[in-house]
């Protein structure tokens, strides 16, 4: 099919298959259409606009925090959202939200990028520090507990940081840069783990509507490859890729639509409503969503504050035995995991 397409294009001087005017400059990763740069930007942005409109992601006048990590996804998200907000009169009050873990030297580069975005796109930047959110910087935590266990802390704290920051700044909604590849990967991982509750939740474009800060993913159907070739994208190395991510890239190579198909499968899974909505209470201490009395972060903080840093570290198997049977495997999944701890947990 590709061959014949290429041939006709050659005959017609490889014209853009959308506008039929300019020369095709790239093969669109999602569809393999040969199109010109201008048309690529246009369809890229228009698709995201369509997703926002179709799913009623925002309401006029809302105050929206864009989770800004300094990576490519959030950089492009910040640009595209501010552009669409202007072009289509969303009437949104956008700002960048960044978290400073307080690790010496670690976030300097990414904070630099975020600060540049602030100037370039005219979006105000708010930085909240771990000190603001938890009363401890990561450096202080490491000093307290040693390097060995800090993964538990960084996973739990990072997972909550954006939401806590957004709440601190009186935000209506938090927009994150999770793209189609991330979502496809999460669907696969949840299948591999047997986690049906997460499997049913992870495809929703907006989550936590019952919680303090709803989160939405305007890039749900946007391919990572397209984000990378979008002009304002910045280079951000992929630190580690898990099995599942590699698998998705392999699939994309032989069938680009596989990523969308995985998401479609995830959306259409027949999951009974009783499994769909697991009892989700809130933490008695901080109000953050938690299935236990106290959320994980509060348990860890309690330990830190009482000088018992090991409190809450390790499996909670003893606490909720049985019901966690299928999820035990999560611990064996380290190799399959990708990205930094905590980032994929939505």
């Amino acid at each position: 099919m590709d061959d014949t397409e290429a041939k006709t294009n050659k005959a017609g001087g490889r014209q853009c298959s959308i506008c039929n005017q300019r020369r095709a400059a790239l093969k669109r990763p999602k569809t393999l259409q040969q199109i010109c740069k201008e048309c690529f930007y246009a369809v890229f942005e228009e698709e995201i606009h369509q997703v926002i409109v179709d799913n009623h992601l925002f309401k006029p006048g809302e105050r929206i925090a864009i989770g800004a990590s300094g990576g490519k996804d959030s950089t492009v998200l910040a640009y595209v959202l501010s552009e669409l907000n202007r072009r289509h009169n969303y009437g949104l009050n956008l700002f960048l939200l960044s978290v400073d873990e307080g690790i010496t030297g670690y976030r300097d580069d990414s904070l630099e990028t975020v600060k540049r975005n602030e100037v370039q796109y005219g979006l105000p930047l708010k930085v909240v520090s771990y000190k603001d959110l938890y009363g401890w910087t990561m450096d202080e935590i490491v000093k307290m507990i040693g390097l060995k266990n800090n993964c538990t802390f960084c996973g739990v704290f990072r997972r909550q940081a954006l939401d806590r920051g957004a709440a601190l700044l009186k935000t209506d909604k938090l927009a994150t840069g999770h793209n189609a590849d991330d979502i496809a990967e999460t669907i696969l991982l949840n299948i591999l783990r047997g986690d049906i509750a997460r499997l049913s939740r992870c495809t929703s474009i907006t989550t936590g509507e019952d919680g303090p800060i709803p989160r939405c993913k305007p890039f749900k159907y946007t391919y990572e490859k397209e984000i990378v070739i979008y002009p304002c994208s910045i280079y951000s190395p992929n630190a580690y890729r898990g099995f599942a991510r590699e698998f998705i890239k392999d699939l994309e190579r032989i069938r680009p639509r596989a990523i969308l198909d995985i998401i479609k499968s995830g959306e259409n899974f027949r999951i009974s409503t009783s499994t769909k909505m697991p009892e989700q209470g809130t933490c008695e201490r901080c109000g953050y969503i938690s299935s236990q009395k106290w959320c994980k972060a509060c348990v860890l903080l309690e330990g830190l504050n009482r000088g018992l840093p090991k409190l809450g570290i390790g499996r909670t198997r003893g606490l909720n035995n049985g019901q966690n049977k299928d999820m035990d495997q999560t611990n064996g999944m380290k190799n399959i995991h990708s990205k930094e701890c905590g980032t994929l947990d939505f």
Binding site: I187, L188, A258, L260, I262, S265, G266, E267
Partner: peptide, 13 residues
């Protein structure tokens, strides 16, 4: 299970 998911057949799986 995996291949049906990849082919978008989550509903019928």
């Amino acid at each position: 299970v995996i291949s049906a998911t990849v082919k978008g057949q989550g509903y019928s799986l």
